[in-house]
Design a binder for these strands. Sequence first.
RNA 1: GGUGGGAUGCCCGAGUGGCUAAAGGGGACGGGCUGUAAACCCGUUGGCUAGCGCCUACGUUGGUUCGAAUCCAACUCCCACCA
Length: 430
Amino acid sequence: MSTEGGFGSLFEELTWRGFVNAVTHPELEAVLGREKITLYCGFDPTADSLHIGSLLPIMGLAHFQRAGHRPIPLVGGGTGLIGDPSFKAQERAMLTREQVDLNAEGIRRQLAHFLSFEGENAAVMLNNADWLCALPLVDFLRDVGKHFSVNVMLNRDSVKNRLTDRDHGISFTEFSYSLLQAYDFMHLYRTQECRLQVGGSDQWGNIVAGMDLSRRLCAAETYGMTFPLVTKADGTKFGKSEGGNVWLDPERTSPYAFYQFWINQADADTGAYLRYFTFLSRGEIEELDRLTREEPHKRAAQRRLAEEVTRLVHGEEALRGAQRAAEAMFGGDLAGLDERTLLEIFHDVPSTALPKDVLGADRTLLDVLAEAGVFPSKGEGRRMIRNGGLYLNSRRVDADDAKLDAGCLLTPALAVVRTGKKNYHLLRFE
RNA sequence: GGUGGGAUGCCCGAGUGGCUAAAGGGGACGGGCUGUAAACCCGUUGGCUAGCGCCUACGUUGGUUCGAAUCCAACUCCCACCA
């Protein structure tokens, strides 16, 4: 990992990497060049894990820290109780306080992977529940509320569509959200000398509101910067895979699935993703871009992307495991692998334990697999076989009355079932 | 509060008494091609069954009929317009 990409400044690097969507003041670039500042970015505790949608702001903070600035990842334990209405189609389900606390803790652990909490510009993790929940209502309305014009708030795009939508509307609770986030910025300016807030492009309004409030109440000169929305060339939403969201928590998205997510990215997207999600140097990334253009079938960029991001999020050891599993699953032949290796490779694949005597029980493979949950029904399984989509130990099963017997075993106790190209299921006989 | 319109399979949507497990599209899944890609082509898409076939299903509950997604009644929910 190196940041020596031949950039004159952090801002230049961020620009090249595509992190700069908008800045509130053009002079921010000069400020960052001559002083080390404190900046913050908020993370919503809507779940107990972040997903890769949050990876961009996290990487953003990390770049700032590498350049000597001091990042504050702020967990929205307080704002999470309210819910940010920005560009959300409808009112959000309210989270309980316990849930938010729990989620904040999970997120705190994940952020710790990306930022250094030691040294002179050590990152500081804060939770806005610590100050927001203690805020007296009347004081808040007098001191903070006074500075917000409802007329202006009503004109925000992020609120507007909720006003014209008769079905959903917006509650007072969510309408007030912006004030709380604005208060955060001011609070961090006062207590941490935080002068910059960064966030996704949907946060522009909230960031500007915070700058405004800081200026009015503290005469503070603060800045804002937004990151772009991560997009995909084919127009579908970034960050979803078959199973839904791609999470940073290995319990929710296994390192193997995580690795696969990146390796399957389209050619058109990998260049941008290498810039966003890795610390590779400009030279390395441009070389990978070239390889994608000249020999796309080798997918060198996808491989490197998957490797770098998986290492960053899950560590070296998990990366190795994911790579070995990929090799076995896509390299073709499973024969020759011993039981321990197989169990390791397939450890996050669903598996079913069966008593050893089903092997001699004259049962059909179809029957057993349906029972094991490989197919939701026998009809589905029959269809799968008819379409040539069922494989046992990498060999296609072509008869739906095939029997399950000792010949089906790959090792004395294991058989590997696959449907389609990449859906595996392990049968363990004990 | 009044008046209309609607509720169909994962989603959208056709279907106004038997030929309807329900057109068409999307999605999903499988196969082919390929680069574990995109695009494209082919197939599958309620359950049980080797098959004949049987069962379950068109908002809910009843009814009419030899026969109902289709007709009738009540109920529930949604939408539109008016006040």
